Simulated assay, not measured.
Amino acid sequence: MANYKVVEIFSSINGEGKRAGQLAVFIRMQGCNLNCRYCDTAWANEEDCRYHWTSTEEILELIHSMGIKNVTITGGEPLLQKDIGVLLENLAEEKELHVEIETNGSVDLKPFLAMENRPSFTMDYKLPGSEMEAHMLTENFSCLDQRDTVKFVVAGWEDLVRAKAVIEQFDLTKQCSVYLSPVYGEIDLEEIVYFMKRNCMNGVTMQLQMHKIIWDPQLRGV
Rank of each mutant, 00 (worst) to 15 (best):
E139F: 04
L219M: 14
N199L: 00
G203T: 01
N14Q: 15
N35Y: 05
V6T: 06
W215Q: 06
M210S: 08
E168Y: 04
V99E: 11
T54I: 04
S11H: 09
E116F: 00
V183A: 07
W215L: 05
L34F: 10
T72R: 05
F152W: 09
L62T: 10
C49I: 02
F170S: 08
Q207S: 04
M115Y: 11
E61G: 00
E186T: 11
M29K: 02
E139Q: 15
K212P: 05
T122Y: 00
H211V: 06
Y184F: 14
T173W: 04
K212L: 10
G156M: 03
F121E: 12
D216Q: 02
Y38G: 09
R198C: 04
E102V: 01
H135S: 09
C49W: 05
E168G: 00
D83K: 13
T56R: 11
S55R: 02
M136V: 07
K95T: 14
V183F: 08
M123R: 10
V161N: 06
A24I: 08
G75V: 07
V222M: 05
I213H: 11
K69H: 15
V222K: 08
L127D: 14
R198F: 03
E131N: 09
I27W: 13
E139D: 15
G85D: 15
D171E: 15
L109I: 03
A24T: 12
Y51K: 03
V7L: 06
L113P: 00
A24L: 08
L109K: 04
K164L: 14
G75L: 08
Q207F: 02
E77W: 02
L87V: 11
S120C: 14
